[in-house]
Amino acid sequence: VTTYKLVINGKTLKGETTTKAVDAETAEKAFKQYANDNGVDGVWTYDDATKTFTVTEMV
């Protein structure tokens, strides 16, 4: 189990959260659900070296 981080660069919501998951795919599903629940829709990137997902909403 690995800890993954999500950085949110939203128009109205900004911040970070973490989740523990067995792999990046599982973490991504959890983060996308979290973003969807919070009304964040944007471009996703993932950095495997730092285990960090970033979602950026276009203005």
Score class of each variant (00 low, 15 high):
1 V>K: 08
1 V>R: 06
1 V>Y: 11
1 V>D: 10
1 V>G: 08
1 V>L: 09
2 T>W: 15
3 T>D: 08
4 Y>R: 00
4 Y>W: 07
4 Y>P: 00
5 K>D: 02
5 K>Y: 13
5 K>R: 11
5 K>I: 12
6 L>K: 00
6 L>D: 00
7 V>T: 05
7 V>L: 10
8 I>C: 04
8 I>L: 09
8 I>H: 03
9 N>Y: 15
10 G>N: 06
10 G>R: 05
10 G>P: 03
10 G>T: 15
10 G>V: 15
11 K>R: 15
11 K>G: 07
11 K>Y: 11
11 K>N: 10
12 T>I: 12
13 L>G: 07
14 K>C: 09
14 K>D: 05
14 K>W: 12
14 K>E: 05
15 G>W: 15
15 G>M: 15
15 G>N: 10
17 T>G: 04
18 T>F: 14
18 T>W: 13
18 T>Q: 09
19 T>F: 13
20 K>N: 15
20 K>A: 14
21 A>S: 06
21 A>L: 03
21 A>P: 01
21 A>G: 04
21 A>I: 02
22 V>L: 14
23 D>L: 04
23 D>S: 11
23 D>N: 11
24 A>R: 13
24 A>S: 11
24 A>D: 05
24 A>Y: 13
25 E>Y: 14
25 E>Q: 13
25 E>S: 13
26 T>D: 06
26 T>L: 06
27 A>Q: 01
27 A>F: 01
28 E>P: 00
28 E>D: 04
29 K>N: 06
29 K>G: 05
30 A>S: 08
30 A>C: 09
31 F>E: 00
31 F>I: 02
32 K>M: 08
32 K>S: 04
32 K>Q: 08
32 K>A: 05
32 K>R: 15
32 K>G: 03
33 Q>F: 06
33 Q>V: 11
33 Q>W: 05
33 Q>A: 11
33 Q>G: 05
33 Q>S: 15
35 A>W: 03
35 A>Y: 03
36 N>Y: 14
36 N>W: 14
37 D>G: 05
39 G>E: 06
39 G>Y: 06
39 G>D: 07
39 G>C: 07
40 V>R: 02
40 V>I: 15
41 D>G: 10
41 D>H: 14
41 D>N: 09
41 D>W: 13
42 G>W: 05
42 G>Y: 03
43 V>H: 10
43 V>T: 10
43 V>M: 10
43 V>C: 08
44 W>P: 00
44 W>M: 03
44 W>T: 01
45 T>H: 10
45 T>R: 06
46 Y>W: 03
47 D>I: 05
47 D>Q: 05
47 D>E: 07
47 D>A: 04
48 D>T: 08
48 D>Y: 07
48 D>H: 09
49 A>S: 13
49 A>Q: 12
49 A>E: 13
49 A>W: 09
49 A>P: 08
50 T>K: 08
50 T>I: 07
50 T>W: 04
51 K>C: 06
51 K>E: 04
51 K>V: 04
51 K>N: 07
52 T>V: 07
52 T>K: 03
52 T>Y: 02
52 T>C: 05
52 T>R: 03
52 T>Q: 04
52 T>G: 02
53 F>D: 00
53 F>N: 00
53 F>T: 00
53 F>H: 02
53 F>W: 06
53 F>E: 00
53 F>A: 01
54 T>R: 05
54 T>V: 06
54 T>N: 04
55 V>H: 01
55 V>D: 00
55 V>R: 01
55 V>G: 00
58 M>N: 14
58 M>H: 13
59 V>H: 12
59 V>W: 13
59 V>L: 14
